[in-house]
Nucleic acid binder design. Structure first.
Lengths: 237, 237
DNA sequence: CGGTGTCTTGATTCTCATCAATTACTGTGG
DNA sequence: CCACAGTAATTGATGAGAATCAAGACACCG
């Protein structure tokens, strides 16, 4: 469902790289090619395997980015919230980007054709530089995730996911600002629904987590973090 | 051990991004700040946890990039050969890059101070753009690795590693052009030495691999690939 | 020719995925 | 407002796979 395009000059998302680098840069005629799309909860934003012609930004909402792993398992790669980019990873020599994105809440997306993005890159070196840094950060956290998957126990993986979600979305009134099913947590942690439930039950007994409906709270973040850091020497991202 | 700096203009590594973008670009005075270092087999190139002040290129040789994972386990992240960059991932807002690099063969490295790299980025947008693409590719393969680690069996992981090594280093006379210990294969695949040995023994019996000393050969790459692809729908990197 | 490190195989233990069964929750239509 | 269906959450039992432990074979090097 389309709606009137949002105005980048009045956009509240200060971290959006377009807002940071493409305004007042003599590219307003390209900016005008932006479209704004409204996506309902649980709807697809782009579909796995389909070629991507656009770069997306989350204007408002929450999105999960996922891929189909081995034996058809769903693997969640990351979550995106206001101001973050989607589809930028498709910007490489690979024709296909085997990744799909699904809205977790009603979401408003901004979208540019990839050719416009390329024009931005040509004309605004600072943007290219910023995107390069963005990739570097993402690569860093992806490689951290590789380490994590390699040898962590299920308990550690689930705790790590909880900590990640807490860093990214924060808590209000003692509960995380994102609603995920047990299945989704499992798909992100690389385990199964049942294991996540078991770990959460254990954490509840230890007063390290509390659950009310689908809402999850972490009363003592530090204590959880310590459990992971006992065995990890590296800086978390 | 230092030696006379190599001359970028006569460098044989056509894929080196410096060679591709920084020659004849009015930055020769920066190019002159390059140093060339000779590293013996098994020696460290940079050490985990230490801040990185330089960008490295492999001029000639083979290098493993690794990190310390959980319970002090070694996790190999990737291998680098002639013309490839090292340390570029440290180029982000993170102060520390918890990664080490070790020479697998006697290796000649080129090195630029990071400040020189930054000058290159400022003055050569095409280089920034190319590095951005490089990151995008690396991110793509790192995310593929995340999927792989999440749910593959040990057998699949080992096969995947063999295929990766084959793509990257190739075979001559029926044997892979890189010598790795069982332990190193395990550290790359995210499993243990014993499991790698078991899988290799099984593959030998099935005529899918042959071992002579430390040399490993893959007679039928296609057959191995099929075994993985039965359960994976995605394009390998 | 010891000695050290890598490689190999078998036995054991343990973690985790899977399967199955039960309960709780949500929304819908009568 | 409640009955019902469909989905999500939970718990227990079981088996498969993989890490660990232990012991021996092999090669390489001084």
């Amino acid at each position: 469902m389309k709606q009137r395009p949002t105005d980048c000059y009045n956009c509240p998302n200060e971290h959006c790289l377009i807002k940071q680098h493409c305004l007042n840069a003599n590219v307003d005629e390209h900016l005008d090619r932006k479209t704004t799309v409204m996506v309902k909860k649980t709807q697809n934003i782009f579909i796995e395997g389909a070629p991507i012609h656009s770069l997306y930004f989350v204007f408002a909402g929450t999105v999960k980015v996922m891929t189909t792993g081995i034996y058809g398992r769903e693997q969640i790669l990351r979550f995106a919230k206001d101001g973050e980019m989607l589809g930028i990873r498709g910007f490489s020599t690979h024709q296909y980007y085997q990744v799909g994105a699904v809205a977790l809440t009603d979401t408003v997306m901004c979208s540019f054709p990839l050719e416009v993005l390329n024009k931005f890159f040509m004309e605004i070196p600072k943007l290219t530089y910023a995107v390069m840094h963005y990739y570097a950060e993402e690569l860093h956290s992806s490689e951290t995730k590789v380490r994590m998957f390699a040898h962590m126990t299920v308990r550690e993986k689930v705790i790590d996911v909880l900590l990640y979600i807490n860093r990214k979305f924060g808590q209000t009134n003692g509960f995380l600002n994102i609603l995920l099913s047990r299945k989704e947590i499992a798909d992100f942690a690389g385990t199964t629904e049942e294991q996540v439930i078991r770990i959460l039950s254990a954490l509840k007994k230890e007063n390290l987590a509390k659950c009310v409906g689908k809402k999850i709270g972490i009363p003592d973040v530090e204590k959880l973090r310590r459990e992971i850091n006992e065995h990890h020497f590296f800086i978390q991202t």
